[in-house]
Simulated scan of single mutants.
Amino acid sequence: MAFALAGLLLTSAAPTIRYGDGAWATFARGTTCDATSRAARVAADRAEQAYLAISFDRSGNRHGQLAAKLSRPLRPGATVMLSVGNQPFLLAARDRFAWSRGPAQEAAIIAAMRSARSLRIEARSPAGGRFVDSYALDGAPGAIDAAAACAARA
């Protein structure tokens, strides 16, 4: 499953697979490396697949930044909540995308991902209905470690 994510990543450069385990994989593109997974619910043919990435780059601008493409567009002004196990995190968001709010939050999210079994992102669609994108965390710690090590070598 994780290897099918190559076309879903945040940047367009051709990725190189560096690691894969469980629902997660690590991809390298130049000086950027991402630990990534797609949402548990696979999108229908024409729907866009939700995915999540933890990104690292050589310059240090991204050292564990979480970025997610949501399964649906957001209602204007909607909040986006990430829950890792029972730990909630408020994300920044716009359109179909959400991301972490800075290094302290990123470190806390990664620490929570190391001990939790699942992660979910909750928000409201333009019609006002709540939606949830769920992710398995099996393989996430290894993929995150591989992405950090990859960026250090890039």
Rank of each mutant, 00 (worst) to 15 (best):
G22F: 01
Q49T: 06
R120F: 07
W24L: 02
M81Q: 15
L8Q: 15
A98V: 14
F97Q: 13
A148P: 08
E122C: 08
R117L: 09
A127S: 13
A2N: 11
A4H: 12
R94Q: 11
L10Q: 14
L137S: 00
H63D: 13
T16S: 11
S59E: 11
R117V: 08
A111D: 06
R101Q: 11
I121D: 00
R96T: 10
Y51Q: 11
R58G: 06
R75H: 09
A13Y: 07
G77W: 08
T79Y: 03
P88G: 12
L137Y: 01
G30E: 06
H63L: 11
A53M: 12
S55A: 10
G22E: 04
A107K: 13
D21R: 09
L74D: 05
A116F: 08
P15W: 03
G102L: 09
R72P: 10
A28I: 06
A23K: 10
Y51G: 13
D57T: 10
A98I: 14
L70C: 08
A47M: 03
P141T: 01
G60I: 08
L90W: 09
Q65T: 13
G22T: 05
V84K: 00
L10S: 15
A140S: 07
R18I: 15
D34T: 13
A43L: 01
E48R: 12
A44Y: 02
D138T: 11
G129T: 12
T31I: 12
L74T: 02
A40V: 15
